[in-house]
């Protein structure tokens, strides 16, 4: 978070001001930030704390009116650790995460590289075309893709059949349903990430790329050896966002098989953690247990995000080599500038 910091506040109370102005300037900022903090107190701090409290209870939805559930200590968490269905939902979530994040990032890096070309004609058309899936609602996306992935008349199966492959029962197969859901995520987010990467690429000093070119590196090599490593902070940021987003997958599995499979399929093959939480809370009405799931969801999200950070840190250390290469090229570029001057 490279915050732009103003170190010269223009509003320092000064002795020349009247008493009122000084007093006003001292109180006003608190007043101005208070709406956020008040709202956060009620809908943030309270709800988070209360989730913890509820998770320690056997608390059915109907207990709420009666004043609360029965205190059971950590029983809900113990149950969670042994709940095969929860862990299935966690592995599903993780599998979809891998199938969406990795292709999405690679594809976005390629597209951004292609868009990062000042000679490109009609850049606006490409950029807006790539961004439009991102503004589409997840509900609409799922409805369309669910029809594209239909068993008998879905366009994808028809196409598979046309080229002589077997049709896939996308909803009943575990890997198939993960692929379908990951496809929806990829469709929605690849363009967005492309623009993020494009912005980052545009801020790479052109002398670096130039130096590599001079050094005889082809376009692919320049992309992979220079651009991508330099984009690492941005890729990290996008990946963490993607991880967090994947742990919140809900509408896709809920709507993937309308009429059937609202529990994520008869084998829970596409049950995600958040859908499980929702089912527990607002179908089974077990608020206590669902609250424990909520905490576990946050914990797993944090662990996954930290793993991404740690993974990138590891890469950074291991690939100092690549940084050295960049440094060497920078030197060459400098040398060239000197030579040119």
């Amino acid at each position: 978070m490279a915050a732009v910091q103003s170190d010269d506040p223009g509003l320092t109370p000064r002795s020349t001001m009247s008493w009122w102005f000084r007093r006003e300037a001292r109180i006003a900022p608190y007043l101005y930030i208070s709406p956020f903090f008040l709202l956060f107190l009620v809908f943030g701090v309270f709800t988070v704390a209360f989730t913890a409290w509820v998770s320690l209870h056997d608390w059915h939805i109907f207990d709420t009116a009666a004043g609360g559930g029965t205190f059971v200590g950590l029983d809900n968490y113990a149950r969670l650790l042994n709940d095969a269905r929860f862990w299935r939902s966690a592995t599903n979530t993780f599998s979809i995460l891998l199938m969406s994040t990795i292709p999405q990032m690679l594809l976005a890096l390629v597209l951004a590289e292609l868009l990062n070309d000042r000679r490109l004609r009609g850049p606006h058309i490409f950029r807006s075309g790539l961004l439009i899936p991102n503004i589409t609602s997840v509900v609409a996306i799922t409805i369309v893709f669910q029809s594209l992935f239909g068993r008998h008349y879905g366009l994808i199966n028809v196409a598979l059949d046309f080229i002589g492959l077997d049709m896939v029962n996308w909803t009943s197969s575990r890997i198939g349903s993960h692929f379908a859901i990951a496809t929806m995520v990829n469709w929605q987010w690849t363009g967005y990430n492309t623009l993020i990467f494009l912005a980052a690429m545009q801020s790479i000093p052109s002398d670096l790329i130039e130096a590599a070119r001079v050094d005889g590196a082809g376009r692919i090599k320049r992309w992979w050896k220079i651009t991508v490593p330099l984009l690492r902070p941005t890729i990290l940021f996008a990946t963490v966002l993607s991880v967090i987003g994947n742990f919140q997958l809900f509408a896709q599995p809920l709507l993937f098989a309308p009429g059937v499979g609202s529990m994520g399929g008869n084998d829970q093959q596409f049950l995600t953690i958040l859908l499980y939480l929702y089912n527990m809370a607002f179908r089974q009405f077990q608020f206590g247990y669902a609250s424990a799931i909520a905490w576990m969801l946050v914990l797993l999200t944090a662990v996954a995000a930290l793993m991404v950070y740690a993974g990138v840190g590891y890469l950074n250390r291991r690939e100092n080599r690549s940084a050295l290469e960049v440094e060497r090229m920078r030197e060459r570029a400098n040398a060239r500038q000197e030579a040119g001057a």
Binding site: V42, F43, T47, V48, Q248, F287, A290, A294, L297
Partner: peptide, 13 residues
């Protein structure tokens, strides 16, 4: 992720 973590108490509220 407030919407997920706070879903149940938010509903109660």
């Amino acid at each position: 992720p407030l919407q997920q973590l706070g879903l149940i108490p938010l509903y109660m509220l």
